[in-house]
Design a protein around this nucleic acid. Structure first.
Lengths: 333, 333
DNA sequence: TTGTATGCGTTATCAA
DNA sequence: TTGATAACGCATACAA
């Protein structure tokens, strides 16, 4: 590794001070045209690149943001991350990606390390932190976007982006009902997940609105992955063979449920209908193709990054953004 | 956002110089036990965290590494990234994630920005850069791990990790042959991908070893995603309806091919066998379950990070690591 | 065991 | 239009 050129290298060669070099590098006025050109030439010649660490120390801006997700392997968050990174790239930012693995200790350490790294902003997805701790953490960052998590009271410098979980559940139940389903089960997400709670509420509300009773034994909580969905469906159907529809927490879970139903010889959707949430790419690949409540994750990711930069620029006020689902009827329901 | 405490804040309160505080923060000897404890207490009290930007400037170490992938949304790289991040977390490192979208311009900009950010090391996956440019880029980093990419000649401070692509193709063809397939097609990856080229070579070699002729019209190049696999299979089968086996570049492509075959009413694997590569989680979810050449991506990711840190620590010599595939026979072949 | 001086590469504030 | 000086927060070498 050859040692990198610095501002003073350029300055020495050009026979000027670091300041004038700094001015041209940062496109600031106050330098003659010929001097500017000369410096630019030299900089290119010796392959000078500003040291962002030093710049960060001087300006308190790192052109760096933190992205914290439960699991970047989950297609939902993978797509979100891609959207975030795409927009970050366009704006000249770099992103620190950190997984929490649904572990609050790890989440706390993630936030600490981002703070130490002095990121310009934070995008925190599906935080599992209790409110008080969460607020304490967020206060340390000058700009934060909370994804999949609400705040009891607005906080300066933070904007929340949430899926409309209530409506999501409502659309699912309505669709089941309108296609004649009568015994609807729900595989709920992690009980400490905000979305899971909201969707369960929506599920209950939708039943009530249809004058149907709510039976708690038709709801099974599960981690948000395929195997867990598989076993949850097993439990549900063992206790209630009469189930003719399952509303799953997300597509991954729905996938597992679908697989289980197929394994025990059920026809989908004839015998039992299955609906997921998210519309991950997988949903349209599996057979039967998954009916799901679509969210455009790439767009949400970009939106999160864009919003974050607006906060950084001081152009945004505390706000909460709600994203609406769209019902994509495919083959499983 | 409240302003953060600095070393000198702690020092002032403790009534000592920054130096002694620095010593206890970094666990260095030369401080009395009581002083150490007192400073620790104060630091916790005012929630002091070392500013890694400043520390980085002073030490030239940022405890930060860059991870460059074509697409973090591709399950293969998502798993790799997870492995990298998991191990980074354990070692106290943060990772910059950047997508190249298979675009060399974007890849170059990614590497430039990582260099400016002064990362301690670089993990570069599936670089699409021509050799000369690649070498020029790598020289700038003190430690780099190249994944899915070979180097003509070893370079100081860099280690390559590659899948054994030749053997991968060989295992696929052998399995097809031993199960009686006679007309084997290959959906090859991007022509500028190292892996794609090697697998194609292996494919040819395996045919030759079996005394079978190589027919170039049985090979179709395709981007490494599901839709592309779908259309590639379409092209192949339109020209050669007699194809009874397809070796796909990866599971995503295989998935698309599988879907296409099902759509035109072929039975898999009775009429046509399909094999992928990677063993992404999806492979065991889809129906029929995909037979594939398994690689443990999480392990590879961790290995890459571990290896990188060994280079950083000066404990490693230039080397090339080769990962062997394992045939996972499931249902599609 | 503790402190002083200096530097890392850059920007900001004045001055010339 | 350019330059001198200080500052960002911390670590290193050397003294005391």
């Amino acid at each position: 590794m050859k040692t990198r050129a610095t501002l003073s290298d350029v300055a020495r060669i050009a026979g000027v001070t670091m300041m004038t070099v700094s001015r041209v590098i940062n496109n600031k006025p106050g330098v003659s045209a010929e001097m500017r050109q000369k410096i630019l030439d030299i900089a290119r010649e010796i392959d000078y690149r500003p040291n962002q660490i030093a710049r960060g120390l001087a300006t308190n801006q790192t052109t760096t943001v933190g992205l914290v997700v439960p699991d970047n392997t989950n297609p939902f968050f993978a797509q979100i991350a891609r959207g975030v990174e795409d927009h970050a790239y366009e704006r000249g930012y770099n992103i620190f990606l950190i997984n929490t693995a649904e572990d609050t200790t790890r989440e706390l350490r993630a936030l600490d390390s981002l703070w130490e790294k002095d990121v310009d902003g934070l995008i925190l997805c599906s935080s599992r932190l209790p409110n008080s701790r969460l607020e304490k953490q967020i206060e340390r960052f000058s700009a934060t976007v909370l994804l999949n998590r609400e705040l009891k009271t607005p906080m300066p410098g933070t904007i929340t982006i949430n899926l409309n979980d209530q409506n999501t559940a409502h659309l699912a139940v309505s669709h089941f009902l309108s296609s004649g389903r009568r015994c609807i089960a729900h595989i709920s997400g992690p009980s400490n997940s905000n979305s899971a709670q909201k969707r369960l509420e929506g599920f209950k509300a939708a039943l009530k609105a249809a004058n149907l009773p709510y039976d708690a034994s038709l709801v099974e909580s599960s981690p948000p992955d395929t195997e867990s969905g598989h076993t949850a469906a097993g439990n549900l159907l063992a206790a209630h063979p009469e189930i003719d529809a399952i509303f799953a927490f997300n597509d991954l879970v729905a996938m597992g449920a679908l697989q289980y139903c197929l394994e025990i010889g059920k026809q989908v959707p004839q015998d039992i209908a299955i609906m997921g949430v998210d519309d991950i790419p997988l949903a349209s690949i599996v057979r039967p193709k998954l009916t799901t409540l679509h969210f455009n994750q790439n767009y949400i990711g970009r939106l999160a990054m864009r919003t974050l930069l607006e906060i950084v620029a001081g152009e945004a006020s505390p706000a909460s953004i709600r994203i609406e689902p769209e019902l994509y009827v495919r083959e499983s329901a």
